[in-house]
Amino acid sequence: MRQAEMLGPVENAVGYVLKQAAVALRNAMDVGLRPLGLTVPQYACLELLGQRPGLSNAELARGAFVTRQSMNVVLRGLEDRGLVTRPAASPRGRELPTELTETGRDHLRAASVAIRRVQEKMCAGLTLAQQEALLGALEACVRSLAESP
């Protein structure tokens, strides 16, 4: 393998540093959500339902970056805790639209505050312009990878 084909030092590889950031973010989110008895997928589910009530299991799974099977487990746990409700029978097809309960909205508010603190800490060394540039750059990366075969 020629030198030009090699990745080079991992510390200078965008993908490697991005993965480091993702792991650090996930760990910080875990710590922030632990006092609320929530996991990151549970929080993601609550946040998605807070913004888009009535999402199906499949839509929630895509939005939370988990499998449909994992989302079923997440939803059952949230339902058992009284944080979400789902109809016993599907109003259309096989979809069971999920909604937050009042207790779920209370948990979401507290969790959103905790996650906002994590985000503020993560971005503390960045100006607003740098945060916007970072967001734009990451969106461009996502688009480029989505377009690749």
Rank of each mutant, 00 (worst) to 15 (best):
E95S: 15
S56Y: 01
A44S: 02
R68A: 14
V142I: 07
Q131V: 12
M6Q: 09
L49M: 13
T103C: 01
A110G: 01
R62Q: 14
L138Q: 11
S148V: 14
A114E: 06
A13R: 11
T85C: 15
M122V: 10
L78S: 09
T101C: 02
A64Q: 04
V31N: 10
G50A: 05
G54A: 05
L138K: 13
T85H: 07
G50I: 04
G32S: 14
G82R: 05
Q69T: 10
V10I: 12
I115F: 04
V40F: 00
V14I: 15
R117Q: 15
G93K: 12
L36M: 08
P97R: 07
L96G: 08
E99N: 11
N27I: 08
E139Q: 15
V74R: 02
E11K: 11
E5W: 01
Q42H: 06
A137E: 00
R117M: 14
N12P: 02
A111I: 04
R105W: 13
Q119W: 04
Y16A: 12
L128K: 11
E47R: 03
Q51I: 03
R26Q: 04
A24T: 09
A89F: 10
Q131F: 05
E11D: 03
T67K: 09
R116F: 03
P41D: 15
G15L: 14
Y16F: 09
L49N: 07
V74F: 00
P87K: 12
E11W: 11
L46N: 06
Y16V: 15
M6T: 06
L96E: 13
C123V: 12
G104M: 08
L7Q: 10
S70P: 07
A89D: 07
L145H: 15
F65C: 04
V17N: 06
G125I: 12
R62G: 11
Q3M: 09
V14G: 11
